[in-house]
């Protein structure tokens, strides 16, 4: 579903991605780990076609993301680190706006909006201004816009960032539910979240993928008890 090869990106002279190769199959949920500035958001932005890489190939749903960005965007649902919301719109107005921009056919828009509102438990705030919502609700509205066109690929950049434990649980359940139907690439700093949601783990450090595989395989190979130990060992360069 996602294939990336020899991907490089620079911010000025600083190398953000270094020859990244990656393949994610249909229906996989992949946890994406890395320290701040490791290259997670850059890779996600390239996959969503928001950024154009300096070099390399990117294929999403068998389509070249560099040549057919609009087609690729139809196949992707994306929740950036800060949910991209318009405070002056109500939840319903925003979701209809997102549905229209994402080419949801007019006859299906109401159905899709109702569906994501139910799936993300937003019924109580449907007519409320986004500006008046709590952080947890805003995050769920962000997730609702990401899945409104039922994309086969879902890219989530720190979806539980800044939420309280109850809200984290709610969003985590939502991701599990969405992940049963689509390919998910999930970036987070909360390692327990990855342990519970994503069978496969990717670790990026200084723009390079330094670990990629099933959690159980990676733990066994490195002789570590849990993901926290594995992650710390990987980023510190321990054998």
């Amino acid at each position: 579903m996602i294939r990336v090869s020899k991907l490089n990106h620079f911010y000025g002279k600083q190398r953000a991605l270094a020859d990244v190769d990656l393949a994610i199959g249909k229906g996989e949920i992949v946890g994406f780990l890395g320290c701040n500035g490791a290259g997670k958001t850059t890779l996600m932005r390239i996959l969503t076609t928001f950024l154009r890489p300096a070099s390399g190939e990117v294929f999403v749903a068998q389509m070249d993301a560099l040549r057919r960005p609009l087609d690729v965007r139809r196949k992707i649902g994306y929740l950036p680190e800060n949910p991209p919301l318009y405070p002056a719109l109500t939840v319903g107005q925003y979701l209809y706006f997102a549905a229209r921009l994402k080419d949801v056919p007019a006859r299906k828009q109401k159905m899709q909006v109702d569906k994501v509102i139910a799936a993300c438990s937003l019924r109580a705030v449907r007519d409320r201004l986004i500006a008046a919502l709590s952080k947890g609700f805003k995050q769920r509205v962000g997730l609702a816009q990401a899945v409104i066109n039922e994309p086969p690929v879902l890219i989530l950049d720190e979806p539980t960032n800044g939420l309280d434990p109850v809200q984290i649980l709610q969003v985590r359940d939502l991701i599990k539910q969405q992940g049963s139907e689509r390919t998910v690439l999930l970036s987070t700093h909360i390692l327990s979240e990855i342990e519970q949601v994503a069978p496969r783990v990717l670790i990026i450090q200084k723009g390079e993928i330094i670990a990629d595989g099933k959690q159980s395989d990676l733990l066994a190979r490195a002789g570590k008890k849990n993901l926290e130990e594995l992650f710390l060992a990987a980023v510190r360069g321990e054998e």
């Binding site: 928001f50 950036p80 800060n82 919301l85 997102a98 921009l101």
Partner: peptide, 14 residues
């Protein structure tokens, strides 16, 4: 500033 440009430019909108 608010990041909604990232939203607009990751939808199939030119």
């Amino acid at each position: 500033q608010t990041g909604t440009l990232e939203f607009l430019l990751t939808t199939p909108t030119t």
